[in-house]
Amino acid sequence: MKMNNNPHDWPDWIVLFQSWWRGETPIGGVLVSILITLLRVAYTGGGVRKMLLEGALCGALTLTAASCMGLVGLPPAATIALGGAIGFIGVEKVRSVLIRVLNQRLGVSDDDDKPQG
Rank of each mutant, 00 (worst) to 15 (best):
D12S: 13
D12V: 04
W13L: 13
L16Y: 05
F17I: 03
S19Q: 10
W21A: 09
R22C: 03
R22M: 12
G23P: 02
G23H: 02
P26S: 12
P26C: 09
P26R: 05
I27D: 00
G28S: 09
G29I: 09
G29H: 12
V30H: 04
L31Y: 03
S33L: 09
S33T: 02
S33D: 12
L35Y: 07
I36N: 02
I36S: 06
T37S: 14
L38D: 11
Y43F: 15
Y43H: 15
G47H: 06
V48M: 11
K50I: 04
K50S: 10
M51K: 11
L53S: 15
L53W: 14
G55R: 03
A56Y: 08
A56P: 07
L57N: 02
C58A: 13
A60D: 01
L61S: 01
T64V: 09
A66I: 08
S67Y: 09
G70V: 08
G70R: 04
L71K: 14
V72P: 10
V72E: 14
G73W: 00
L74E: 10
P75G: 01
P75H: 07
A77K: 13
A78I: 07
T79R: 12
I80N: 01
I80W: 04
A81S: 12
A81I: 11
G87V: 03
G87Y: 10
F88D: 00
F88P: 00
I89F: 15
V91C: 11
K93R: 10
S96V: 07
S96Y: 04
S96L: 07
S96I: 05
V97C: 07
V97F: 13
V97N: 09
L98S: 14
I99E: 05
R100I: 02
V101Q: 10
V101Y: 10
Q104V: 08
Q104L: 13
L106W: 12
G107N: 05
